[in-house]
């Protein structure tokens, strides 16, 4: 997983996983309700506040954002030019700022640029929100969530095994890499064929090892009674606390408020 669970004891940590997932869903809905970057900015700020609250590792976030900057810029440019004036409801958004080509062709609309900014804000707030969710929720909680949502045992089993074997496979990969380096493998051959060829000595043993491991893992699982019944004992019963009901009420109120602003007052569109 890109971002690991950050143990802590904040309110967000203590909230039931179902509450958090509900909150996350409402947040997504809200962010798709509004097109106006001002509203998006509000959402970014509020997730930012949450992130700040749980002491998010800022460095990591920056590390993830930095390579995205060129994409961000190009999104704004592309939306600016590609959104035709007819696509906007508001007159102000239909205004054409300038034309990129002579003869009034390829006009850049104000709405287009605003839309681009919205996309960026949306991306950014989603990233923050999902980070907040994963940082404050342990894997166990997520498996519990699957269990509660009546997802078959196999799925949560698959999820935990996959997570359990990430470090193991990563170790294997390193060991294979070292073994092949010691035989003089060079990993900087030119061209697509060259680079594929130079990774064969890593990929082939890695696949073979994974298959062998999967084989003995399946034996070990049978050995320990897996598959005898279609279900298994749940190790930890999660339950709602009063704070969860409060939080859910708050979240739902936000949703209603959002819907009223958007559909009742027609705010937040371009």
């Amino acid at each position: 997983m890109l971002i690991e669970y950050l143990p802590g004891d904040s309110l967000l940590h203590r909230l039931d996983v179902r509450t958090k997932v509900l909150g996350f869903l409402v947040f997504i809905i809200l962010s798709f309700l509004f097109q106006d970057p001002k509203f998006q900015l509000l959402l970014v700020l509020s997730t930012g506040l949450l992130a700040f609250w749980i002491k998010i590792p800022l460095r990591k976030i920056w590390g993830m954002l930095l390579p995205l900057i060129p994409i961000i810029l190009s999104i704004i440019l592309i939306t600016g030019f590609s959104f035709a004036p007819e696509r906007f409801d508001r007159v102000s958004s239909q205004a054409i700022l300038f034309y990129a080509l002579p003869g009034d062709r390829l006009g850049a609309t104000l709405g287009g640029f605003l839309m681009g900014t919205t996309f960026i804000f949306r991306l950014f707030s989603m990233m923050l929100a999902s980070t907040v969710l994963t940082l404050t929720t342990s894997i166990d909680d997520f498996t519990q969530f699957f269990h509660k949502m009546k997802v078959p045992v196999e799925v949560s089993m698959m999820l935990t095994t996959a997570i359990r074997f990430i470090p193991t496979l990563d170790k294997k990969r390193r060991q294979i890499l070292e073994a092949q380096k010691a035989r003089g493998t060079k990993f900087n051959q030119k061209g697509i064929i060259g680079s594929i060829r130079s990774y064969l000595p890593i990929m082939v043993p890695l696949f073979i090892n994974s298959i062998m491991m999967a084989n003995s893992l399946s034996m070990a699982m049978l050995n320990r009674g897996y598959g005898l019944t279609r279900t298994w004992t749940s190790m930890r019963e999660i339950s709602f606390a009063p704070r969860d009901y409060w939080a859910m009420t708050f979240v739902l109120l936000l949703l209603i408020l959002g819907a009223y602003l958007r559909f009742g007052l027609d705010l937040g569109i371009l």
């Binding site: 166990d140 935990t160 997570i163 193991t168 050995n223 897996y226 005898l228 190790m235």
Partner: peptide, 25 residues
């Protein structure tokens, strides 16, 4: 079996040890 690595299924010691009995409900 021989390789302990492929016999450990859980992420934590407790989760792994509980795997068998859980299957027996």
């Amino acid at each position: 079996q021989q390789d302990p690595e492929t016999q450990i299924i859980g992420r934590t010691v407790e989760e792994d040890t509980a795997f068998g009995p859980r299957n027996f409900l």
